[in-house]
């Protein structure tokens, strides 16, 4: 049984002709990272929204832990899948621990508040992401990276086997990007969770691969998956050229840490490059 399984999934916004995506097949198993790559506007976020049950597929089906997602009661998906947004839009200055406690909503009755057990779970989650010392600070005063770690803690408090992240490092500086990546590695290594994430950076996938984390990647192009598999197999120079219109070289460095792979961008491709397929 797969953690998450999409068969022939397709979605079109109401009152629009063109599908956002179609014929998507995807499987996520325990203890692996699955990265969605693709240019802006290719439908990554909409695909994640469909898995979260915010939109309903109008083609194909989604199975979560073997159950058909169509039969979930509203909110039930939260027992199986947690979500980390690209950036939480601040409203009220809740404290960090209060934010994380909201991850317990799915286990808390409509007319009750989180119990002491829930509070312990929230603390444990903060411990894992290393934000325990910040627990009484207002969430609105955290830096982008710290806020993102708290969002991950909130997802952890939800105690699901899969976390969906939508470009979790998009707004972060160099160090905090690294911190979030390290946290993800830690989660997958130590807790056997799985992460399905959309990202704009092909090198993120190599970061995971270089650390021997089970990782697969899907390239989204022309409203469907162009190819999926191991980063080294999929993120070839020709594929990068095709979907991003960027000429890049896949380099391999022999380091003390072992052999590290990295995609090095050279330049954008112009219309003339199109005629010459050998460019890739």
């Amino acid at each position: 049984m797969h953690l998450l399984e999409l068969n022939d999934a397709g979605f079109t916004y109401p009152q629009q002709r063109d599908a956002v995506f179609s014929s998507i097949n995807l499987r996520v198993d325990r203890g692996e990272i699955f990265c969605l790559l693709g240019p802006n506007g290719c439908g990554k976020t909409t695909l994640l929204d469909c898995i979260l049950g915010i939109h309903r597929l109008d083609q194909g089906r989604i199975k979560v832990n073997g159950e058909d997602a169509r039969h979930f009661r509203p909110g039930e998906i939260a027992k199986h899948v947690a979500y980390v947004p690209q950036r939480h839009e601040n409203t009220f200055p809740y404290t960090v621990i209060d934010m994380v406690k909201m991850g317990r909503a799915v286990y808390t009755g409509r007319f009750s508040s989180p119990s002491d057990i829930d509070k312990e779970q929230a603390k444990k989650a903060l411990e894992i992401v290393g934000m325990m010392h910040m627990r009484h600070r207002p969430f609105t005063q955290l830096s982008g990276g710290e806020a993102q770690l708290v969002m991950i803690a909130r997802a952890l408090a939800q105690q699901t086997s899969l976390i969906i992240m939508d470009e979790p490092t998009a707004h972060l500086d160099f160090k905090h990007e690294m911190l979030v990546m390290e946290t993800i590695v830690k989660l997958v290594r130590e807790t056997d969770m799985s992460v399905l994430m959309a990202t704009h950076f092909p090198n993120h996938t190599f970061y995971f691969e270089n650390r021997d984390i089970p990782i697969r990647v899907a390239l989204m192009h022309d409203h469907t998956f162009l190819e999926s598999g191991k980063p080294t197999e999929v993120l070839r120079e020709d594929n990068i050229g095709r979907i991003y219109r960027v000429k890049a070289r896949l380099a391999e460095f022999a380091m003390e840490e072992g052999s590290l792979r990295q995609l090095i961008p050279l330049r954008t491709l112009t219309a003339e490059d199109n005629c010459d397929e050998s460019q890739y």
Partner: peptide, 26 residues
Amino acid sequence: GIRWRINVLSMGDKEAHALGVNLKLD
């Protein structure tokens, strides 16, 4: 009765849904 849920609802529709809230009912 529902006061703690208001915290969760104030996360916005998408996050509240992903946190397991029955948006329409709550």
